[in-house]
Simulated scan of single mutants.
Amino acid sequence: MAALQRIIELNRQRRRRSDVVYIHAYIRENFNPLEVLSDEAVVRKYRLTRPQIRELLQLVHPHLVRPTRRNFALTPAVQLLAALRFYTSGSFFEVLGDGLGMSKASISRSVTAVTQVLLQLADRMAFPSTPDDIARTTQGFHGVAGLPRVIGVIDGTLIPVARPSENEPIYLCRKGFPALNVQVICDHRGVFTDIVARWPGSTHDAFVWANSALCQVAEGGGFGGCWLLGDSGYPLRPYLLTPFQQPNTAAEARFNRAHIATRAIVERAIGRWKQRFCCLSKTAGGVQLHPTKCCAVAVVTALLHNMAVRANVPLPEEDMVLEEDVADLPHNDANPQGLAVRNQLVHHVSPLKHLPTPLP
């Protein structure tokens, strides 16, 4: 009887398992640059302002919270800042990890996770479709060199990538290094309105355009009488005007000068894009990731570039030599409708003194 009472007493004194077992799950306390660095330092390191980074953090936070009780989980803020730093510098993961106090694997996982989350914002890059947007864009382009009804300027650029282990020859561009051929279209402000990042570097610009969704829209009359401007690597179409390869009259030479001055907007936009996010530039080594991830990085950095342009975020002050993209071989497809539109437009371009002389 005494033994039974002793057992009952022990059971009363026994505590629940949850009272005696402690789960030690801590969040890693990393250095938070947003709380310490100056505004100029934040822009220099991450290419975005402090409010823009916080806005991005609110968007990505629900998707980057780790559903785990393991020790030292990375916070969403740490993952976002690590990815932005990679886009900005293009450094190797191990080098970035040494500066941020993270391992190479943690940097890789952070860049992959943040890129996939930000890729969901791709719908924010919209080609002008409403009457107000079209009117605003065409008026902006008309003020550059007097060309009417221009809805965008198009160009292709080479994004260097790591040498792929499969199908390497198709990634070798005309300059001899593995790359992606990325097609971009921008408006008069230099804001990207469309991007196609899916083709290897050996692909011709005309092929990329012909297999894009926007080309199908244009073929179906979706531009409503407006047109794009492209270099001689693109086919001449009623909705895509290219310059005269051999201008024979003063009017044709005047059209070429206006065409060059207007299309230079996309060339400058590409240069600023690569200068803002050095991971895209060959001088920084290119995007050292799998080609599929490189495509996602190109789209995400274009979205971030648009945010910076709209907010007038200054470019980095340090000088950086940017490589020039060589135009693809001229496209000799003479479309009768495109010829008719261009010949008619030639006589409506007024001579402007500030237009540059066409290159030989």
Rank of each mutant, 00 (worst) to 15 (best):
A105F: 04
E166A: 14
V208D: 04
P160W: 03
L322K: 03
R70E: 15
L100V: 01
H290I: 02
A210I: 02
R85Y: 08
R254S: 07
R28W: 00
V161L: 06
E40F: 06
R163P: 02
R263F: 02
W209T: 06
A145W: 06
P200T: 03
D231W: 01
N11R: 15
G156I: 05
A250P: 04
I7A: 13
G233N: 03
S165F: 02
D205W: 07
D319I: 08
I265E: 06
R136S: 09
V266N: 06
T130D: 12
A2T: 06
Y171G: 02
L303G: 05
L303V: 09
E323Q: 13
D39Q: 12
F92M: 04
V297M: 10
R28T: 07
F192Q: 04
P128D: 13
F277P: 06
Y234R: 04
S38I: 06
A73K: 11
W199F: 13
Q116F: 10
R174K: 08
Q13H: 07
Q288G: 01
A327P: 01
L180S: 05
A296Q: 15
P316C: 09
K175A: 08
E94R: 14
L345A: 12
M125F: 12
R198K: 13
V287N: 01
A251Q: 13
K45H: 13
R189E: 14
R17C: 02
R16H: 11
H290Q: 13
R85C: 08
G233D: 08
L355F: 12
A25F: 11
C173Q: 06
P164M: 08
A258H: 09
L359T: 09
N343M: 10
L121R: 15
L345R: 12
N332S: 11
L329I: 07
N181G: 06
L57Y: 02
E324F: 02
H61Y: 10
I170W: 01
L121M: 15
L180A: 05
H347Y: 09
V117A: 14
I23Q: 13
